[in-house]
Computed example of a mutant assay.
Amino acid sequence: MKKLASWGVGAGLTALALSGCAAASVAGVEPTAASTADSLTPDEIEIAAIPNQEFASAVGPVLESFPNDFAFFYFDSEHKPVVGFTDEAVPAVLDAVDSTGQQAQIIEHAGFTDAEYTATAEHLGADLQATWPTDVPLPMIGARPDVGVGVIGVTRIADEASPDATRVINESTRLIHEAAVESPFTIQIDTKIFGPGTAATSIDRWNGE
C-alpha cells in the first residue's frame, strides 16, 4: 500500500516546540533550513529549545481552546513564535503570549482555521494518492505556514543517483502541477528533491494555478 508522508503543523504544538523547527519533522526527514541543529551540540540544542517549550506549554492550550479563531502556530528560522488567527487576534491568546515574557509575531485575517488548513493538505494528499503511479514515490505534503500563509508544501522524493531519477522527478512534478486547492490555500513545490542524504528545504513559489 502506498503511504503519503506529511508534515504536522498546528495540532502538534508541543512537537514544534521540541523540534525548534519551522515545521514538524517527518520520520526520516532531517531538520529544515529553519533549524540550526547542524551547527549546535546536543546540549546547546536542548538549551535553545527551552524557551520554545515554555512558550508552547503556556500558549498552546489556549490556542487550542479557540479552534474557530486559531489558524497556525510555528517557530521561525530564529526560533521566534509566530501565531496566526483566522480573523482578529483573540485577547486571551495575547494575554497568554504576554505571560511568557517572549515576543511573538501575530498574523491576523489568515482567512482559515487550523482544522481547515490541515484538512486541505490531507485532501490534496488523498487526491494525489488515488491516482499516483506505483513506480513513482509519493511526495511529502503538509501545511507550511513558515513558507507563507496558507501554503501547502509538496516535496518530491527520488534517488537522484538512480538512472530513473529524471523520469521520476518529471512525472512527479507534472502530477503535482495538475493538482489544485481552493483559495486562500496555495500549493508550493520544494525546489530540492528529498532522497538519500538530502533534506527538504527551500520552497518554489509556484501557487498551483
Rank of each mutant, 00 (worst) to 15 (best):
M1S: 06
M1Q: 09
K2A: 11
A5M: 10
G10M: 07
G10R: 11
G12E: 02
L13N: 04
L18W: 11
S19F: 01
V29T: 11
P31C: 03
A33F: 03
A33K: 15
A34P: 03
T41L: 10
D43Y: 03
I47M: 08
N52D: 07
N52P: 01
N52E: 08
E54M: 12
A56C: 08
S57R: 15
G60A: 11
G60P: 10
P61K: 14
L63Y: 08
L63C: 04
F66G: 12
P67N: 15
N68A: 09
D69F: 06
A71F: 03
F72H: 07
Y74I: 06
D76F: 02
D76W: 10
G84H: 05
F85E: 04
F85L: 10
F85Y: 14
T86S: 14
E88C: 12
A89P: 03
V90K: 09
V93A: 02
V93D: 07
A96F: 09
A96T: 11
D98C: 08
G101D: 10
G101Q: 06
Q103T: 15
Q105V: 12
I106F: 01
E108H: 12
H109M: 04
A110K: 07
A110P: 02
G111E: 06
F112R: 11
T118C: 02
A119P: 02
A121G: 04
H123P: 05
L124W: 04
G125I: 10
Q129A: 11
A130M: 06
A130T: 00
W132H: 03
T134F: 00
D135Y: 03
M140L: 12
M140G: 00
A143D: 03
R144F: 03
D146T: 07
V147N: 02
V149F: 00
G150A: 05
V151E: 07
G153K: 05
R156F: 00
E160P: 05
P163Q: 08
P163A: 14
R167T: 14
I169W: 01
E171A: 01
I176Q: 02
E178T: 09
S183R: 15
P184K: 12
F185I: 06
F185Y: 12
T191L: 01
G197S: 01
A199D: 08
A199K: 15
A200K: 07
S202H: 11
I203K: 11
D204E: 12
N207M: 14
N207C: 12
